[in-house]
Design a protein around this nucleic acid. Structure first.
Lengths: 269, 269
DNA sequence: CGCAAAATTGCGTGGCACGCAACCAGAGGT
DNA sequence: ACCTCTGGTTGCGTGCCACGCAATTTTGCG
């Protein structure tokens, strides 16, 4: 076989056959055990019923357990010996499964390494939803982004190295993009809800589009801050960089027409 | 060998050995490069003229020729028979070189497929620079983005399929991210110039950061528009989507504090 | 014209993604 | 509790790929 798409061309079926590929959905039990704050958030929603509803019981649990085990082992090994010095064989061994089983869960080792990050990225929507209703959208957005990056492991050096790895390795770039996409979508959904709840008065505006655009802008800005943070020669705190960058985003579009050449006075429109 | 990093661990040397890897100069992968500081460093060394003089030799021309040939062949074949039904062997054959030579120019076939797009992405800075000086920054930015996507082959169905491929295939995601990064950096540089030329009066603002943030926001917004365009069930024109999305970006940050719940008035600092 | 630098090529190796077909373990019916 | 059946695991095999190494050809320069 080539790489994907067994015979056809489109790549649709994917989850067919034998592997436990698509699993069931999004049960987040033990994967994000690093951040205690996240647990609080999850419990606030009352997702215990979700797991019960899934109720395929032991079978499903074991599946997610090994998935998490593989993902965690992949990240750990990659950090310990370097990305290029870890084989899928090693990861599988660390998770006590066959190398073949590894590929039943992840197509590439890079996907396994980034699985935890993707999981976490999907939670930023709830982080925004948890902001007090009295806050303005922008304020809540800034707070949510800061909280997302601070509750994560962005403080301890281990996670810092993990981020660095994702930003430097070409192979991880695609997976990192996937994480960012997840974050953007989750954020867009939460923004749309908040906009709707606040009752956007403007008549014909496309709420979905606006939310998506805003989420994209905020996410991209956060990435700029993260990139600057990790490139800073004297290591500095991430939070002020984030707040600074987000403030610049707001400012850059608030007064955009100030930029005209001094000689000409032609004020367009 | 593993994947990268032959023996060491850091991945620094990269362009050593035999292959014509580094080409002229700017195909470096630099993820952490935050703006123009790197350029300053390079110019501080002095021998930039050497490279320029060297670039016009017959040797360099042939190199770029075969590189373009490979890239073009890769894209064409991928479009014709589908991404998974083309081997590096096929691409090399189409470019009349050895399969081994292919890997002297590109590490993966996906990189070859996206090389043209990356090339083009770096030109958006000049597109912005070409806007009349009388235009406001925002107006020029919108016009530049629209022009960039319209002068490209984003109208003819062939390029549309190419874009679709880049957005759907997981393997191309990483390369697409690279293109977006290139576009963002090129745009940020041009924005910074335009800001400086207009004389940003605000005293202590970090021009580089603001330009970078703005470029990131605009680029991300353009991606939102492109994604919506290509997902539109009745095929529609890209231009209005782009303009609409960019207008939403501006609007979303102009009046962000309008969103407060009607019942509660508690303003949480 | 001849030499050195640089690019191309052939060959070989280690690794990976995944189809296929056995095998084995939960889940559900009687 | 027994049996079956659905579905996850594993071993094996295959095709493809990235790239080191070394020999060969091409190009630029004195």
């Amino acid at each position: 076989m080539r790489t994907r798409a067994p015979t056809g061309a489109t790549e649709a079926p994917e989850t067919a056959g034998l592997g436990p590929h698509a699993s069931t959905g999004l049960d987040v039990d033990r994967v994000a055990d690093v951040g205690a704050q996240a647990v609080t958030a999850v419990q606030a929603q009352g997702p215990a019923a979700l797991e019960v509803a899934h109720a395929h019981g032991l079978r499903e649990r074991k599946k997610q357990a090994t998935r998490g085990e593989l993902s965690r082992a992949a990240l750990r090994l990659a950090m310990e010996r370097g990305l290029d010095n870890v084989l899928v064989e090693d990861i599988a061994a660390a998770a006590d499964v066959s190398p073949r089983t590894f590929n039943n869960y992840f197509t590439t080792k890079y996907e396994a390494i980034c699985a935890l990050g993707a999981e976490r990225a999907s939670q930023i929507g709830d982080t925004l939803r948890r902001r007090p209703a009295g806050e303005g959208l922008w304020q809540a957005l800034t707070a949510a982004v800061v909280a997302h990056y601070e509750t994560g492991q962005f403080c301890d050096p281990a996670a810092m190295a993990s981020l660095k790895m994702m930003l430097t390795s070409p192979q991880l770039r695609g997976e990192h993009q996937r994480i960012v996409t997840t974050m953007r979508e989750a954020l867009a959904a939460a923004i749309a809800e908040r906009m709707a709840a606040a009752g956007v008065d403007s008549a014909g505006v496309d709420l979905g589009l606006r939310a998506e655009v805003l989420a994209a802008a905020v996410t991209a800005t956060a990435q700029v801050a993260v990139r600057r943070w990790f490139a800073a020669t004297p290591a500095t705190a991430l939070r002020p960089l984030l707040e600074d960058a987000l403030a610049h985003l707001q400012a850059a579009l608030r007064a955009p027409e100030t930029t005209v050449p001094p000689t000409t006075d032609g004020s367009a429109t």
